[in-house]
Amino acid sequence: MSNGAGKECNGSVAAFEQIPLERIDRGQARFAFAFPREPDEALIASVKELGLVVPVALQGPCAGRYRIVCGHRRIAASEAAGLREVPARPVDRNLPEHTLFLLNVLENAALRPANDMERALALHRLVSDFKADDTVVFSGMGRLGLEPSQKILARYTRLVRLSPALQRYIVSHGISIRVSTRLAGLPLEDQAALSSLLTAVSLGGNALRELLDLAEEIALRDGIGLRRIFSESPLAAIIGDTRRTVTQKRERVKQHLTEMRYPILTARRDEILALLKKGCAVPGVSLTPPPYLEGRELRLAFSFQSVAELREKLVRLEGASLRVELEKALALLAMEEEA
């Protein structure tokens, strides 16, 4: 078992050897792009049980220290698992840095698919840190499972503008790249306000997109920032209400934003529903206007289990049909002109 101790900077090394963790620069992350950076509990448990099965790749030693090229999380997991040394293969110190980075991208791609933040961080680093040319970047995109194109590159590198909290959110909730890109376009203060909201209501991709649509259109119409919508009452009161479940909060948030977005529809529908409630208070019978009030018909629905029950409901409905509230509701739907 060799630990590489005493080898010079330009010395040759064995193909694969055990390296003490204390000789590895664990704090440096020149070639890292994994997200989240910390190893998960499953990896730590696996290392505890089986040891580190897949060797890491190290460059060096230089002045007795090794630099991590591939395996930042495996090394962190090994440390957490109580290992003192890890299997490592050497990497030629003369390779250009962008090649070393691509090596890490390639190795990760072989182990598991990258998530969108990893793709974003990897591409951002290739372009900004390693100044790689288009050929190298497009090669990296292919390794990350992306079609090489400037459009897709721009879309992914935009994600580095996300706040740390939203970066974690999009990965943990599997948010689509389209929605993630929208979030990345928000000012940081709006992102912070949205993060607080999402912590309380935990929305998936489609629900998040709908919420963004509503909020952004309200913001554009009223000339206000998103943070005002997300952080002011009554939304703040809804998400701060400890008596409600997450599901209830989610529904209430959506309802509130819809009412803000469609005040005329809300007012007219509430007016019609109030008339119907008064005009047709027959238990077990529902009278509903058309969706979005697009139409002039009311829908009547009820169930019955016997002819007697049917007759009773019909008698009560006949009484309701004479009520002025029902006429008023129908007149509102028909948009009858006032005299």
Partner: peptide
């Protein structure tokens, strides 16, 4: 553009 801000709703 504020066009999308109107109370536009899905029709049949």
């Amino acid at each position: 553009s504020r066009l999308v801000c109107g109370e536009l709703v899905p029709c049949p």
